[in-house]
Simulated scan of single mutants.
Amino acid sequence: MSATKRIVVFGGNGFLGSRICRAAVARNWDVTSVSRSGAPHWSSVLGTNTPPDWSHKVAWEHADIFQPAQWTSLLSGADYVVHSLGILLEADYKGVISGRESPITGLMKAFSSAKGANCPNPLDRMRAEHTSEPVVDPPKNASQLTYELMNRDSAILLAKEAARHGVSVFGFVSAAGGAPVLPSRYITTKREAEAVVAREFPEMRGVFFRPPFMYDSSRTVTIPLAMMMAAGSAFNGLTGGVLSGFLGAAGTKPLKVDTVADAVVEALEDESVSGLVEVPKLEVLAERAWRKSML
């Protein structure tokens, strides 16, 4: 009998992260989630206030990604580490998704300034300042969270610690593309993280997931958005992708969030999967995971 696999999911209490934890529990893995708030607010991720049965098999840990002393010990003995953190808007994007804040207000905040533009990645700062640790200035509050910090620097920081602890596989949840209404830095910081982690930590099998827009009935606002994006994807297909550059993720077929989560866990376990995992491969992996669950 093979030893139980151990996975640590940073951002495991989020929309996708919680489903990754669920899929890992289904494989009888030892699962730890790390986030600032610990266990999820179930109403926002599953649409219910009642924790599902599988959640009791997850260790919901509190830690700040920008304070490594709070979480590095959790990496010891881990087979897989997943970075499922990030921000869509440099604003209260969760408030936008849940309806607490209007999309217009969120977009105005997102475009109010290029808060982190031209900020070097933490490994470049480390070399420039002749230190032995990545240089990251932790945000003092939510208003200081930028694409550079959340989408890029936190991933590089986590990858460095994962490599130092001998983790064999590092998964990074990136994105299929931007969208006409999002600043370009949203996707460029994701791409920078992919490139730096792949280049700097070759001892780990890096798997970079590029999911499209994800939807689920637990977040009712995602359903009409998914329908619009499915229409955009169909139009893009009929026109040979002529508007791919403009539509970004809006021109890519949306996927159910559970589909992406199943694909992530399947890819982590499959030693033949490495590098970029685009939407078609996500669907193949999810289908394979589903077939295994039927055995």
Rank of each mutant, 00 (worst) to 15 (best):
T48L: 03
S112C: 00
N141F: 05
V81W: 09
S218K: 02
P51L: 11
G116A: 11
M126K: 13
A39C: 04
D137A: 08
A195Q: 14
T188C: 04
S73V: 03
S55Y: 01
G166Y: 05
V25G: 14
P40H: 01
S184A: 12
G237N: 13
K140H: 04
M150F: 02
I7L: 12
T105Q: 11
D53I: 06
V167Y: 07
S84R: 01
A230I: 05
E192D: 15
V260T: 05
D64N: 15
V173Y: 00
S218A: 15
K253D: 00
M1Q: 09
R6G: 04
E90T: 11
Y147C: 07
R164F: 02
Y215K: 08
T72C: 09
N118L: 09
V196M: 03
E101T: 13
T105E: 07
A26I: 11
K256C: 06
R219H: 05
S2H: 11
G237Q: 06
M126L: 02
E266C: 09
M228K: 12
L247M: 14
T32Y: 05
A24P: 11
M1S: 12
E61D: 03
T220G: 15
T239S: 15
V45G: 11
P122W: 07
F209S: 07
T131E: 03
T4E: 13
A250N: 11
V284L: 07
G77V: 00
L88S: 03
N118K: 03
A261K: 09
S143F: 02
H130V: 12
T4S: 11
I97N: 03
T188V: 15
E194G: 12
T32H: 12
G241C: 13
L88C: 07
D270H: 06
I7E: 06
K292F: 10
V81D: 00
V260F: 00
D30W: 01
G245K: 14
F170D: 08
A267R: 05
M214R: 07
N236L: 02
H130Q: 13
V264H: 02
V260R: 03
A195F: 06
V45I: 14
A78N: 10
E200K: 05
M227F: 10
R210H: 06
T105N: 13
G240K: 01
Q70K: 09
V169S: 15
V45E: 05
T222A: 14
P40F: 00
